[in-house]
Design a protein around this nucleic acid. Sequence first.
DNA 1: GACTCGAGTCCCGCC
DNA 2: GACTCGAGTC
Length: 668
Amino acid sequence: MSLNPAQQEAVNTLSGPMLVLAGAGTGKTRVVMHRVVNLIRHGVAPSRILAVTFTNKAAREMQHRAAELLGKRQSQAKPEISTFHSLCVRILRRQIHHLGYPSQFAIYDRGDQESVARAALREIRVSETTMRPGDLIQVISRWKMAGIDPTRAGSVAQSDKEHLAAAGYRRYQNALKAAGAVDFDDLLGLTGEVFSRHADVRREEAARFDHVMVDEYQDTNAAQYRIVKALAAEHRNLCVVGDDDQSIYAWRGAEVTHILRFKNDWPDAKTVRLETNYRSTRQILDWSNRLIAFNKVRHAKVLRATASGEEPRILQVQDETAEAKLVVEEIARAVAARRARHGDFAILFRTNEQPRPFEDELRRAKVPYVLVGGTSFYDRKEIRDVLAYLKLLVNPRDEISLLRVINTPGRGIGQTTVTRLVEAAVGQGKPVWDALANAEQYGCVSPAVLKAIGAFRELIGRYRKLSKAGPLVDMVRSLVDEIGYRDELARLYPNPDDVQTRWASVEEVVNAVGGYCQRESRPTLSGFVQEVALGDRDTSDDKESRLAGDAVALMTLHSAKGLEFPAVYMVGMEEGLLPHKRSIADAAGAIDEERRLCYVGLTRAERRLTLTMALTRRKWGKARPTLPSRFLYEITGQADNPNYLASVRKAPGGAAPASNNSRQTGRQ
DNA sequence: GACTCGAGTCCCGCC
DNA sequence: GACTCGAGTC
């Protein structure tokens, strides 16, 4: 397919700032990729080109397409295509020492963050009923994204809760720094900080590239915005691509204003609008346009369809099991009749609890599927245990990992001992790891425990050396073996099948290390651990990609952004799910974002679009009645239907509407 | 220090 | 329904 004039313009403008305002399905990824190729064709070295995405999935997709387009031309050198977070990790590995962190810093994921937050709350004597670790993390994250450091948090805190959080923030941040660790927000924030504090560092990093492209620019938050500006300041070859109607990350600080005021930041910027939609049928676009028009604050766009097709459907079922059955049966039937392939289908949902019944049905029907995103693999206990060992080998100051493995599997260092050691370490302002060396000084530690501590230190020290010397895979395998992790699993899980599956995931970690070592020219354990923390899953282990070749895709609406499928099922179209109950309770703007999220879902579909809703949905063990999503009424042009108003007003999970007829929300 | 049992809590979305 | 946490017991 050749490029249309607008796309052509975006592809051919190779220098200077440019804003590409692209509606859904107008080929914006295509434009970015062709620009990359065009730049290379004009003699720009691939390594001088940086393209930034938000999700790993988008980065992988782009890398893949770039390789395809470039073909034999440049098989060696590749443009740098990565997420903001992995870009920042690379920058920080080189530069974070300027801020007093070790170069091999640990990245704390959500679980680690919670542990740190829990400890911080304990320190300031706030009970978890007053403030849960998750709440604290949320406030801290908001502050970090706004560039507020712990010293300033106290002055911006408004409520009592925020004052507590400000105190918690100080402890939290101190603990991270003491452990030589950063959280996800720090990755962006510290990169910005090192740039603003050290002009030479900024120039050095900016000088690595001559061209910068940012996809989904409407989703940049303040920190990302600063980083983009810092990297493009000199060469000014900055091309950003986005669509304000698809801004769905306000909850992590994204500001649509960045894309709206691009022309102010870069006055000589060229603007290109892409408005021809090549993806969806006219019928699907009609629904999408009708929906998004309910958002009052937006840049009106005219999306022109290029194809016509069948009317989308709304289906109503009894409960979530019936919903899964219906969808999976339809898919299986279509594939059996050779009308479609498994890979043509995507099942999109709002929350991560929704895919479960679908997975059950898909397995039962022997339909291949890929559950995209969902950090479930790395959330498993056994994976976290093994990874904690690896993280500790990289960085013995990593307290969270140390505490996780110090007595896992049990080696006789009990809770009492650990508490005593932690208190001693905190008292002296030293890492717990150092306290282990002088455990006997802290009294009340029996000879047996001392011996266990000594053995543990020896173990970690020895494997630390091995991790720097020999092949990583062998090291990990031997470590897992030596700590007797398999026996530990057998002890914990009486059912041999459980032991088997859990041991299989431990093997997966070993495989992941192997995959990492294969594609990295200079593999290091810290590199692997950081990659894992970013969720940058193993792509060379082509199990996923092979499966993805012809498997039904299951994913959240958020991770579906940027993708397209011949047939899309949007499931759980109910008040409380989409829009989510938290957004219903929130300020007015939150519903608009849910609507954009719904819009993103609708516009993923090329030819077939099906929305489903269940009359009851099981929650915390009980089936509860639901209300149809208000978006169903808006989509079908029934916003004057009295039930629409009921949806809008009713709290989720409330009583069922008066009659069953009220649930006839659309064509069946 | 390890284990069992019952009460209480529970989650939006992503890197 | 699933999981965590704390109290109580060995």
